[in-house]
Simulated assay, not measured.
Amino acid sequence: MLFSKAAILNGTVSLCVCTQEQLEERRAEIHKRIQERLKDLEELKQAVESLKSSACREREESHLIFTQLIRSIQQKQAEVTALITAKEKAAVSQAEERMEQVEQEITELKRRDAEMEQLSKTEDHIHFLQNCQSLCAPPESGYLPSVTVNTDVTFEAVRKAVSELKGKLEDIWKREFERITEKVNEVCLWEPKNRAELLQCKSVFTGAFH
């Protein structure tokens, strides 16, 4: 059975003729396309739900990891502070002990000097001879060994080391953030068929940082 239809194409009248068989084939193609698109629609819905679920989960996990990272940095900060404080107390205690010993030695030397001055003025030769040798001899405990004191001692080198660590961490963070961003950009609801689709997929994510 023949069916005809007048159609205007490019300003001219053209006659489109098809058979029942061709019509049925065309309808079958349309039905198949409908089923394919329904399947695509269902898959897209599932993909969106999966994407949302994964995004929620990864936000929470990322937040937890960054919280742990912050705590780790804070712990190291506390450790450095404790190290400086412990070194300060130990050094001050050592210096105070040394100062006490120096002060005792100064007191002893002044006492000897006073006795020597008094002995030098005596006119009693016997008394002079009896005491001169003991006063001129070094003390039994000996004198304190000399030390070279660093009068400009500071913890500045520690601050420089921490500053260098900060710079290194910032460099690492910059590189790693670029890698993380790339991993985020790789997430796509469908497989890109060409570079244009790939760039379009990535632009959805990179646009959020502009």
Score class of each variant (00 low, 15 high):
residue 1 M to T: 10
residue 4 S to N: 06
residue 5 K to A: 12
residue 6 A to P: 07
residue 8 I to V: 00
residue 14 S to I: 14
residue 14 S to N: 13
residue 15 L to A: 00
residue 17 V to F: 08
residue 18 C to S: 11
residue 20 Q to H: 12
residue 23 L to W: 13
residue 26 R to M: 08
residue 27 R to K: 09
residue 29 E to M: 03
residue 35 Q to V: 14
residue 37 R to I: 13
residue 38 L to C: 14
residue 39 K to Q: 05
residue 41 L to C: 14
residue 41 L to G: 11
residue 48 V to T: 06
residue 49 E to N: 15
residue 51 L to H: 13
residue 51 L to D: 06
residue 52 K to S: 00
residue 54 S to D: 10
residue 58 E to A: 13
residue 60 E to Y: 14
residue 64 L to Q: 10
residue 65 I to A: 15
residue 66 F to D: 10
residue 67 T to R: 11
residue 67 T to Q: 07
residue 69 L to M: 09
residue 69 L to S: 10
residue 71 R to F: 03
residue 76 K to N: 11
residue 77 Q to S: 07
residue 79 E to F: 07
residue 81 T to P: 13
residue 84 I to S: 10
residue 84 I to T: 05
residue 86 A to K: 00
residue 87 K to N: 06
residue 89 K to S: 01
residue 90 A to V: 07
residue 92 V to C: 02
residue 94 Q to T: 04
residue 95 A to R: 15
residue 96 E to S: 10
residue 100 E to P: 01
residue 109 L to T: 15
residue 110 K to G: 01
residue 114 A to C: 07
residue 114 A to F: 06
residue 118 Q to M: 03
residue 120 S to M: 02
residue 121 K to C: 00
residue 123 E to N: 04
residue 125 H to P: 01
residue 130 Q to A: 07
residue 132 C to M: 10
residue 132 C to G: 02
residue 135 L to A: 09
residue 138 P to K: 08
residue 138 P to A: 11
residue 145 P to E: 15
residue 146 S to Y: 13
residue 150 N to T: 00
residue 151 T to V: 11
residue 154 T to E: 15
residue 157 A to S: 12
residue 159 R to C: 12
residue 159 R to F: 15
residue 160 K to M: 12
residue 161 A to W: 12
residue 163 S to N: 09
residue 164 E to T: 04
residue 166 K to V: 03
residue 174 K to D: 03
residue 175 R to V: 06
residue 178 E to R: 05
residue 179 R to W: 03
residue 181 T to D: 04
residue 182 E to Q: 08
residue 184 V to E: 10
residue 187 V to M: 02
residue 192 P to F: 13
residue 194 N to S: 14
residue 195 R to C: 07
residue 196 A to D: 12
residue 199 L to F: 14
residue 200 Q to Y: 04
residue 201 C to P: 15
residue 206 T to A: 09
